[in-house]
């Protein structure tokens, strides 16, 4: 579950459990909750208030995810009030352990701790291959098929793979 200690807003457990079914359209195994983009979830009478924050400012999937959150809330009989905010900016550290495990299973290397990235960019030079767990890997491109992914090559299993970028 989401580490509520990291969040500044209240997180209603039941509302969060509904949001589990909304997935990132570009990574369909990862729920918004596991991705850590829900920064507030509260129920106030008949209103369900959700605050989201994008992984990347220019993420084109945000609007779709917002609509899906609204649909899920409506389906449960509440009036949705969904806002997007940078009040609590997203970082890859917000991803839950469950989310990281789901990413790896999906074939995407999960992000390392971002504090290390800011300290030393050399950490980007290698990643652990999600297929064979090999560490003899090479950063091919810090930019990938979506804003949140980088491209690597694994010299052990000779396959290219992608990493969810630490930010």
């Amino acid at each position: 579950m989401l580490d509520s200690g990291k969040s500044i807003g209240p997180l209603n457990a039941e509302l969060l459990s509904w949001l589990e079914e909304v997935k990132d359209p570009e990574i369909p195994v990862l729920s918004l909750v596991d991705m850590g983009v829900i920064t507030q979830a509260e129920v106030d009478g008949s209103v369900a208030r959700v605050e989201m924050t994008p992984t990347f400012v220019g993420c084109p999937a945000l609007e779709i995810m917002k609509q899906e959150v609204e649909q899920v809330i409506t389906r449960h009989g509440f009036t949705p009030e969904v806002t997007v905010s940078f009040r609590e900016p997203w970082s890859s550290d917000k991803m839950t352990e469950k989310g990281k495990a789901a990413l790896k299973k999906f074939g995407l290397a999960p992000p390392p701790a971002s504090a290390q990235v800011f300290h030393d960019l050399e950490i980007l030079e290698s990643a652990t291959c999600p297929r064979c767990n090999g560490t003899n890997t090479e950063l091919k491109n810090p930019f990938g098929p979506t804003l949140c992914r980088a491209i690597y090559y694994c010299h052990t299993c000779h396959e290219a793979f992608e990493q969810f970028k630490p930010v």
């Binding site: 924050t53 905010s85 900016p89 804003l147």
Partner: peptide, 11 residues
């Protein structure tokens, strides 16, 4: 707040 977010991307 936006600056705190954008900073990571600009790295």
């Amino acid at each position: 707040q936006l600056a705190a977010k954008v900073r990571g991307e600009l790295r």
